[in-house]
Amino acid sequence: MTMKPATGVTVRGERAPWLTLKMREAIEAWLFISPTLAGFLIFFAGPLVAVVWYSLSEWNLLSQQATFVGLANYNDALFRNPDFWLVVRNSIVFAVGLVPLNMALALALALALSRRFRGVVFFRTVFFAPVVTSAVAWAIVWKFLLQGEAGFVNQLLAAIGIQGPNWLREPDWAMVAVIVTRVIKMVGLNMILYIAALQAIPRDYEAAARLEGASNWQIFRMIIWPLLGPTTLVIMVITTIGSFKVFDHIYLMTGGGPENGTLVLAFYIYQQGFQFFDVGYASALAMIMFVIVMGLTVVQLALRRRDT
């Protein structure tokens, strides 16, 4: 019989005598994992290292000329370019507005829809529909709905006697608009995660508490909320990271305007790198974004650990 190398595919029956069982398992494991790992190294780890290197140079995307400049790009961002702090502020405002709103709405909807009643499937379907819709389509449509006086939203408000703002033309309202439309787009996902978690809570907990005379609020506060802890953590981390990733939504709805009021990091990186050709500066921004997102994630995980 012919002995082929241990690819995991061809080694069959007879065992290669010089390999211990343990070693063989390890080799097979590495083979199984190698496509993912190779991809990770090539398209993620490598680029992450490269971005550090890029961020230390002055590099024009068009002319392709690069010179080493040390920390100048970081210096520009942190101390010289006033736009940078505005962008960081916007990104944080966006996250701080989006994450609690998204989670609160998701939890409220989940509490409303975790029990069976007539029409529950319909409502779950409706609240989840924007999740499967492309962000591009969503942004395009909302941009129309949020026009000044002729927009549908303001027509609706006018019908009940409220004069709506010119949503996408005033910096603060534009920020509100992109946050709320993004929440409507994504809240269904978190709602489903909460529903799954709620349905995993044994019914007798609630029944027992009711026997003791606990109110709905007490049941929620003392039983349900603590049991949702792990899910809440996952949702919080995912949603926070997601809020920093937002690009298409901003790109299509406001283009970062008005008055840079919705210019967030993800969009700013794109703008600096691909529209102004400043690869070095954009890479420094990418590194700063990396540090911010990693930092927030670690803080969230650590806070949670302290709680439990």
Partner: peptide
């Protein structure tokens, strides 16, 4: 499967989930 470094590999892979793709898009472009 049991193999040395499994935990480390998992940790590495998880870290990729926490990084927005905008961070690596420029090197990936090149």
């Amino acid at each position: 499967l049991r193999f040395a470094g499994a935990a480390l590999v998992a940790l590495f892979l998880v870290s990729a989930l926490m990084v927005p793709e905008e961070v690596t898009i420029i090197p990936n472009f090149f």
